[in-house]
Amino acid sequence: MGFTGQCRCGQVHLQLQCDAPGPLYACHCLNCQRWSGSAFALHMLCPAEAITVSGSMLTYSHATDGRTSTQYACGTCFTRLFNETDAAPGMRVLRASVLHGADRLPPLAHIWVKRKQPWITLPETVPQWPESPTPEDFAIAISQQLRTTSL
């Protein structure tokens, strides 16, 4: 099974080869707000090899708190597609909104909620953290959420 997506202008296409989409979460940090120009960004964790891209991309690398993140965007319309970070080797953080049918994928968690816009109300049943959770806490919460939503 796979998922497809594209940038805004259609010059870059991607294919996500997986049986099910990875965990989708909303990040409310200031960086995501600024990158997206919105209140939060929707992300999906994926193994790097699961994403195939065609089209011309630009990259931008930056360091924060001792970690380096490389952003990948369309070279024409500058739509951010995914990033790689040395905090999660072998993984890509896909911008879930570029996927066709993304509107059917609700966030399973919210991170950096201490920075969320005050007019946003989050469902109490969805895990949330004031900042970034540990990978272990995130994995536990997501697996519990997946069990709950698939019942």
Rank of each mutant, 00 (worst) to 15 (best):
G2H: 12
G2V: 10
F3I: 05
F3R: 14
T4K: 12
G5W: 01
Q6M: 08
Q11E: 15
V12K: 05
V12N: 07
H13G: 13
L16C: 11
Q17G: 02
C18G: 04
A20L: 11
G22L: 08
A26M: 06
H28I: 03
L30I: 10
C32T: 11
C32F: 00
Q33E: 05
W35C: 11
S36K: 07
S36Q: 13
G37P: 08
A39V: 13
A41G: 14
L42G: 09
M44Q: 14
L45R: 08
A48N: 02
A50D: 14
A50C: 05
I51R: 05
I51A: 07
I51C: 09
I51N: 06
V53Q: 06
V53P: 06
S54H: 12
G55M: 08
S56D: 10
L58N: 13
T59I: 03
T59K: 04
H62P: 00
H62M: 14
T64C: 09
D65K: 07
R67S: 13
T68S: 07
S69H: 03
A73F: 11
A73K: 11
A73W: 00
A73L: 13
G75L: 04
G75Q: 04
T76G: 00
C77D: 03
C77F: 01
F78S: 15
F78L: 11
L81A: 04
L81F: 01
E84D: 07
T85F: 00
T85A: 05
T85M: 01
D86M: 04
A88Q: 14
A88C: 06
A88G: 07
A88V: 12
G90F: 01
M91I: 09
R95G: 05
R95P: 11
H100V: 15
G101F: 02
G101R: 04
A102C: 14
D103N: 11
P107K: 06
P107G: 08
P107D: 04
A109M: 08
I111F: 03
I111S: 07
I111Q: 03
I111R: 01
R115F: 02
K116H: 09
Q117V: 12
Q117Y: 02
I120R: 02
T121V: 15
E124Q: 15
E124H: 12
E124F: 00
P127M: 01
P127W: 00
Q128F: 02
E131R: 09
E131S: 13
P133Y: 03
